[in-house]
Design a protein around this nucleic acid. Sequence first.
RNA 1: GCCCUUGUAGCUCAGUAGGUAGAGCACUUCCUUGGUAAGGAAGAGGUCACCGGUUCGAAUCCGGUCAAGGGCUCCA
Length: 637
Amino acid sequence: MALAPLGPRPQPERLRNDPMNDSALAELGNKDNADPLYAVRHSLAHVLAQAVLEMRPGSTRGFGPPIDNGFYYDFVLSAPITPEDFPELESRMKDIIKAGQRFEREDLEVPAALARLEAMGEPYKAEYARELADRHGLTRLGFYTNGPFVDMCDGPHVGHTGKLPRGAFKIRSVAGAYWRGSEANQMMTRIYCWAYADKVTLEAEVKRHEEGLRRDHKKLGPQLDLYVIDPAIGKGLPLWMPNGTVIREELEKLAKEMEFQDAYQRVATPHVTLESLYYMSGHLPYYKASMFPPMVLEEAGEAGGEAVRETYYLKPMNCPHHHRIFAARKRSYRDLPLRLAEYGQVYRFEDHGALSGLLRVRGMCMNDAHIYCTEAQIEDEFLKVMRMHERYFEMLGIADFYMRLSLWDPDDPKGREKYVDNPAAWERTQNLVRQAMQKSGLPFVEVKGEAAFYGPKIDIQLKTVTGREETFSTNQLDFAVPGADRMNLVYTGPDGAEHHPYVIHRAPLGTHERFIAYLIEHFGGAFPTWLAPLQVRILPISERFNDYAARLDGELRRAQVRADVDRSDDKVGKKIREALTSKIPVVLVVGEQEQEGGTVTVRRYGEDAQASMPFSRFLAEIRAEIDGRVMRRAPGA
RNA sequence: GCCCUUGUAGCUCAGUAGGUAGAGCACUUCCUUGGUAAGGAAGAGGUCACCGGUUCGAAUCCGGUCAAGGGCUCCA
């Protein structure tokens, strides 16, 4: 395959969010004990906890596992810790390191372990110990002691705290986190900490992180006039500025071309719909919490007649609408696969605390399509969609992703609210998707509990500049919604009988909001020419050349190139600076020489060499570059 | 929704023993017509997020609300 993704992350997502850093995980054999950093981070977590308990006596502890860039530790604190306390905390940690406390292991029988944890006043640790015993059948639990500090823990640790690199950690932030990751539980205070093997690495990583923040779409987006989020409109409801709208439309144009080639047909559907549709589709039972509250219309009836009452919802998904388009005609197996595509606006009522820039919004426009097909066609169609993903990602230079086969979780206690109850169909469709993926040769990881309510899916996971992993694209198989008890979609088979089609829901370019957020960070705001809001800035040396510049501008616009003229009375240096900070791909400098010869001097973003050439040649070159969606530079360079 | 932090001009930020606001950039006007990362001068611009309290007096202290950011849960 053309793309070489970095491949599956070694550690499945769920382990990160359910940090069983203690005995159970070691017993299950999942922990990477080979990594010496693991022991360092794990040990530092104990050192942090010791320092926190010194500073806030009476606090109790949750989990404290190593993570990607360091570790964290959860506490129920007797008094708050704020960033102002970080220096003191760090200095106490350094004192503990200096003291060279030995890490001593001791294994206790479960009853003794429980007694000890109760005596320590650690109810959360005790709860977990009970679970390890009851659910995982452990009979002995490990304890590590260093100096005055004791923690239930399976290790591994360094020999003594003196072995920990003193300058290679840094407290990063405090955050809230629910005990065991469930909102029904106590909210704890989580202290995040960077930690690396040595000071140089730490400083480099922290610096890398800080530089990354400069590419943050929340910073660059408004700076480059791509979008604003205006409280007057509502939270999570971005306004797209002219520049951002150009990017949306270029992506849509690309999608339309690609989908046309693969024989999709475009449709258009309204933003609001009657409640009954969402009962039919199953969204209201499964998805209500993510939907905006309904609009209820009431009209008094004609004299004596009954009152008319209608309930509408903003649509959270486009699928039910597309399904009704499928159902609007009698369909034959000869019509399948039927591919309906729409860049569809949807509204989801996300918790306000979850909103973040363009990444998590309440109104979004989705690169949506639904493919209605038979079971025999699933594999081909699924693979075709995966190939489309690949073409997009290659075109955009996106390589740092992994694919996740998102499965249902039969053991989820809320399973009946989250997933359609049909174990046999889940098993069958999961196998179908798994087989298709194996056939594609694309690497993927499997994660339970990430499926849609109606079926398994392949999610494409990317990391934002702030280190957060998000799903940007998705390719889902739906066995449930077309069924008799929901939308009841049917086609006539060769046997003359009616059958339910399968549906593939796919959004390789995700939503404009999230995908463009990624692209802003990916390109650091310096978009390839075909995507750039302004492609060419014409820069006259002085006002005397404004007319020549205007003629070129007109020519470029006639050729559908997005150009403008810098008519300010600033000096050339200033105009150049302005063009560079706006990350415009091409600057044409024109003065005496250029006007005389009908030429332009071309200065490209990120390239030092300049070239003078006849304007006609430049026009042909830029046109070809745009048409070919050429990427001249590595993203973000 | 929950935990923590933040909220001064369009942007980046000053303004802590509480005494009714300041800089740079951007913007407007004028001078300058300048060949590759900031030419000069003047001007305009703020209900210090909002509401309430303490005080003779609040950007500053206290409470609440709203919004944003970092997390958790949830998700494209």
